[in-house]
Write a protein that binds this DNA or RNA. Structure first.
Lengths: 341, 341
DNA sequence: TATTAGCAGTCGAATTAAAGGAGTGCTAAA
DNA sequence: TTTAGCACTCCTTTAATTCGACTGCTAATA
C-alpha cells in the first residue's frame, strides 16, 4: 500500500469521524489532497475497498471506514498529540485538588476525562480483594453495632457497619481486634473467609453468630468496592448515530449492565491502552461502539481502570492523547506525594 | 357534571393511559359503555371538551385528557387498590431483608418500586443536617489520618476520612473526641460550623489547621448525603412517547440534573403523596412528564423521599397504590423493630 | 504507465399526488 | 334526551416523480 493510499485512508477516517457522513472522492480532493484529481482518488478508493479498509453504504455512495480500516488507522496512522494547552491546563487544575481517598481521585479523573473528550466515561477503582491488609479496627457504635475499618498497604480505607442480634462488650471487641490483626496483617483481603471464621470461633468461643456476621459483612464490603463510576451518560446523545433508537437503546442498556462494563474494565492490562472497535467487543450490544480502556498504575500500585465509550468513529486521537496525559500526571503525583493514597 | 360524563372521562383517561392513542367515541362504547350509542358519547365528549377536561389533537381526532382532566382523574375518579397479590408478595419479600443502614433500605425501596411500576424512580435519604447528634468518634488511622464517625439520634451513621499535613497524637484525638461530644451531643448536625471551629481552637490551642480541616471535612460529609438514588433509568424508553427524540433527551437531561431532582424531592410534605402533572412541574423540561413524590416517615423519623417519573399518562392508580402499600410496610417494620434504623 | 476529464448509470432522499380510513359534528327522527 | 345517518376533515400510507450526489468506466493525455 503506497503512501498516497495511506493518506487517503487517513483522510477518509478523519473526515468520517468529523462528519459521520460517507466520504466522497470530491471531499478528499477539496479538503485533503488538492493536487490530485477526484478520478485518481476514486481509483485508489476502489483498491482500498478491495483490500477491505473501506466500505460503501450503497452502490453510489461515498466510503466509510471498515473495522479493518479503523484498526489500521489507530495502529499506524495516528499521532497522539491531539490535546491543546487549555486542555492540559484544565486537566492539571482538576487533578491537583487534594483528595482524601483513592475513590475520590477515581471519580475526579473519570469526570475530567468525560468533560475533555465529550464521551461517556466509566471507571472502576483498584481491586481491593487482592490488596494486603495493613490494619483492622473495630469501633463500637452501641451495644449491638460495630464499625469495621480496614486499611490496606496501598493506603485504601474500607469501612462497614455491622449489626448484631445480641449484645457485645468492649472486651470482646478488643479481643477481636487483636486476633484479626495478628492473624491478618500483611495478608490479602480475600483471606477473610470461612476457615478464618472457624479459626476465630475456636480461639475465642464467642457466639458463632457474631463471628459469622462480622465475616459476612466484611466480605460484602470487599465485594461492594467493585463499584462503577460513570460520567457523561448523555454526552453521546447529540451524536448523529444516536438518532437511531436502536443504537440509543443499546447504549443505555449496556451502561445499565454493570457486570458487563466491569468485565470489560477488569480485563485490562496494567499501563496499557486497549482499543476495542465495533465487533472486536465481546459483547453483541457494543457492536456499534468503540471502547478504549486504560488501567492506570504506579509501580505495582493499581489506580483503577478507566474506559471510554463512544461511536466507532470516535475521536481516537483525542481520547488516547488525553489518556496518556492523565496517566503521566497520575504517575508524577504519586511519585512525589509519597505512598499515601 | 353528571355521572355518565364522569364515567366517560374516566374511560378516556384509562384508555389513553393504556394505549397512548387518542380515544374515539366508538372505543368508549365498545370497551366501556356498551349500553349507550356513540353519538351520545360524542355529545358528552363535546361538553367535556368545552369545560376543558379533554382535547383533540386535530379536528377529526379522538380525545386526549388535558392537564385539567388528569387532575380531576387523580383527585376524584381514582381508586387506589391497583396492586396484585403477586406484587404484594414481591414487595414484602424485598423489603424484609435485614439492612444495616437506612441508605440500604432507601436503595432497596427505590429499586423495588421501579421494578413494580416500571417507571424510573429516584429517591433521597433523610436529611441529616437537621438531625441531632448522638455521638461523635474519632479513630486514628495513622499519624496523619483520622476517621470521624457520627451517629445521629435517628440511628444514622456517617463517616469520613480526614487527612492532615502534620502529625497528630492519640491524646489530641481523645481530647477532640471529648470536646466534640460534650459540646455537640443532642445538638443538630448543622451546628458544626465556623463558631465551633473558633471555640475548639480557644479551648485546645491545637494547630488551627487541624481543627479547620476536621470541621471542613465533616461539613463536606454532611452535604454529601444529599445523594440521589436512581433506578430504572431506561424503563421509560419503551414507551411510545419516547419515540420523540426531544422527549427522550429532555428526560435524560432531567435525570442528570441532580439538583433539580433533589429540589423536587425535598419540597415534599411528610407522609403525603404529591402529584405533579405536566405543566404543574416547576421545571420546563418536565412539562411532558408527571412526577409523584412521597416523603416516608415514621413518627418524626424521616425515612427519605421517593419520586417516580413517567409520562403524563402514567398509571397513577398503580403507582399510588404501590406507594401507599410500601409506606404501610415501612411503618410496620419500624414500629415493631424498634428505633434502630 | 499513471493520471485525468467526462459521462452514463445507480440509488437514496425529498417532494408531490392520491387513496384510504378513522373520527367528528350536525341534522333530523325516534 | 338519545340515536341513526351522513357529510366533512385531516392524518397516514403508498406510490410516483424528481433531484442530485456519488461511482465506475472509457478514452484521452502527460
Amino acid at each position: 500500500m503506497d503512501e498516497r493510499k495511506k493518506k487517503i485512508l487517513r483522510a477518509i477516517v478523519d473526515e468520517y469521524i468529523e462528519t459521520a457522513e460517507p466520504v466522497s472522492s470530491n471531499t478528499i480532493v477539496q479538503k485533503y489532497e488538492p493536487n490530485i484529481s477526484s478520478a485518481t482518488v476514486r481509483n485508489d478508493m476502489a483498491e482500498l475497498e478491495k483490500i477491505g479498509y473501506i466500505e460503501k453504504t450503497h452502490t453510489s455512495s461515498g466510503r466509510v471506514p471498515s473495522a479493518k480500516g479503523y484498526r489500521l488507522y489507530v495502529d499506524e496512522l495516528l499521532k497522539y498529540d491531539d490535546i491543546s494547552l487549555e486542555e492540559i491546563k484544565y486537566i492539571g487544575d482538576k487533578l491537583e485538588t487534594k483528595v482524601n481517598q483513592l475513590e475520590e481521585l477515581t471519580r475526579i479523573t473519570t469526570s475530567t476525562i468525560s468533560e475533555i473528550t465529550h464521551y461517556t466515561t466509566v471507571s472502576v477503582g483498584p481491586e481491593s480483594s487482592k490488596q494486603n491488609i495493613e490494619e483492622i479496627k473495630f469501633v463500637m457504635l452501641g451495644a449491638r453495632m460495630l464499625m469495621a475499618i480496614i486499611v490496606t498497604e496501598l493506603g485504601i480505607i474500607k469501612e462497614t457497619i455491622i449489626k448484631f442480634d445480641e449484645d457485645i462488650t468492649q472486651e470482646q471487641v478488643d479481643a477481636l481486634t487483636n486476633l484479626f490483626n495478628s492473624k491478618l496483617k500483611g495478608k490479602s483481603l480475600d483471606m477473610i473467609d470461612k476457615p478464618l471464621e472457624e479459626y476465630i470461633f475456636n480461639e475465642l468461643h464467642y457466639s458463632i453468630n457474631i463471628i459469622k456476621t462480622i465475616i459476612e459483612e466484611i466480605k460484602k464490603m470487599i465485594k461492594d468496592d467493585e463499584r462503577l463510576y460513570l460520567e457523561g451518560r448523555n454526552k453521546n446523545f447529540d451524536l448523529p448515530e444516536f438518532k437511531s433508537l436502536d443504537v440509543a437503546r443499546n447504549f443505555i442498556n449496556i451502561l445499565d449492565e454493570n457486570d458487563t462494563m466491569l468485565d470489560i474494565l477488569k480485563s485490562g492490562v496494567a499501563d496499557d491502552i486497549q482499543i476495542f472497535i465495533g465487533d472486536e467487543n465481546k459483547n453483541e450490544e457494543l457492536k456499534d461502539f468503540s471502547v478504549i480502556t486504560f488501567k492506570h498504575s504506579v509501580g505495582n500500585k493499581d489506580l483503577g481502570t478507566i474506559g471510554i465509550i463512544g461511536p466507532k468513529r470516535m475521536n481516537y486521537s483525542k481520547v488516547i492523547s488525553v489518556m496518556k496525559y492523565i496517566n503521566r500526571i497520575l504517575n508524577n503525583n504519586n511519585d512525589t506525594n509519597g505512598k499515601e493514597g
